[in-house]
Design a protein around this nucleic acid. Structure first.
Lengths: 207, 207
DNA sequence: CGCCGGTTCAAACGGTTGTTTGAAGTCTAG
DNA sequence: CTAGACTTCAAACAACCGTTTGAACCGGCG
């Protein structure tokens, strides 16, 4: 009668944690809630991850390693084009996140977790993310700088800062726009991505 | 030796709660931390507010009542202009938030609390905010619709959604841009507001 | 078989959570 | 000066927190 689980204890903890962190925040989701949702013993978290803080980091690492890789891959492709546009670079940044958010298991929810991380203004999580994945933003900033030579460094950084905000917020689905009834999640998010690219490109190019 | 406090128990709780909610989130900040920071007895929270959830709502109400009023005042002024621009309407939305964030006591911190509220995707807080302050966004959306008649309703809502994201994120100071050394907080935030208006207006007008 | 590293388990650890209680203090109106 | 409403207080409540423990279980190798 006892069915063998499809995924390892580790993976099921990560999946349940991701979902509960998105819904209730890092402090708001307890390890007991996580392990119950994962159908796993409470002690398994500390056995496999050492602590709750480490679990949180691992939730990010599991998604961001691949997301960052794909973003930089796409950016390299765009850089190799004869005459890349702003939209191409934005696409290189957004499309991998879009694909992740359409992944069958939990991708969409992860974008909400990622947005929560921005709210953790101080502390270990911000440092972990910037230490491990800051280079991605750096590379993209350089690409934008090449495409917007008329902007001085400070003006460019202001605009990129605002753009990252718009992207983060939108990809986390924080807004009021709901998916149309009968519309697939895929189509909804693809349209969002198009709007995002269009809006952000205009903002970056302004004046 | 016992100095009489400048503010009421109620006000000191609200101030301390605001600060700790910004720093650690709603779940992450405990009532004991709040009351300790406010130099107030633990039971005072439940006496004055009834519960932690009510305290959270009151933290918002204290700021948002006035912020909403001022935004709509400014919007009415803009609407009375002979030929209002997109930038005028954006200014009506942003300037009151800017002024709040420059308020001597805690305004800047409140914008971070407000951004945290967007991450609380489900639950009572979102409903409280949309029930009580949703009409402000509605009025602004109508003003934008008048200024952007070439956009159909859906296109407009997508863009406003993205714009709200950019504004929320930026006003909460979630980004990477730090205040320049020697630059005043006021000047930093005023420049940010100008960049925000410029960027967002371009995004709304795109194409 | 017996052993052993890897994993899961129930139970307990000390500490913290939001909330309640009833007594003590404070202030004003009569 | 006292009665009574309002406010503060220390203490306790049950529930929950992250983490640790040591025994039980498991598969594969000798």
């Amino acid at each position: 009668m006892q069915e063998t689980p499809l995924f390892s204890t580790r993976q099921r903890i990560l999946g349940a944690a991701e979902e509960l962190f998105a819904e209730r925040g890092f402090a708001g989701a307890s390890l007991r809630q996580v392990t119950a949702a994962a159908h796993v013993n409470l002690a398994a978290v500390n056995y496999h991850f050492g602590s709750k803080d480490n679990l949180i980091e691992e939730v990010f690492r599991r998604r961001l390693d691949e997301l960052s890789r794909r973003r930089l891959e796409r950016l390299a492709e765009v850089d190799a084009l004869p005459d890349p546009s702003l939209e191409d670079v934005l696409d290189a940044f957004i499309t991998p996140a879009l694909e992740l958010s359409l992944d069958r298991r939990g991708g969409a929810v992860f974008m909400r977790v990622l947005a929560r991380a921005f709210a953790e203004h101080n502390g270990r999580l911000r440092k972990f993310l910037s230490d491990n994945y800051g280079y991605v933003l750096k590379d993209f900033a350089a690409a934008f700088a090449r495409l917007l030579p008329q902007l001085d460094k400070e003006e460019l950084y202001w605009r990129l800062d605002i753009a990252v905000g718009a992207l983060t917020y939108a990809m986390a689905d924080f807004g009021m726009i709901q998916r149309r009834v009968g519309e697939s999640e895929r189509s909804h998010r693809e349209r969002m991505a198009q709007h995002l690219i269009h809006f952000t490109a205009a903002g970056l190019r302004a004046e």
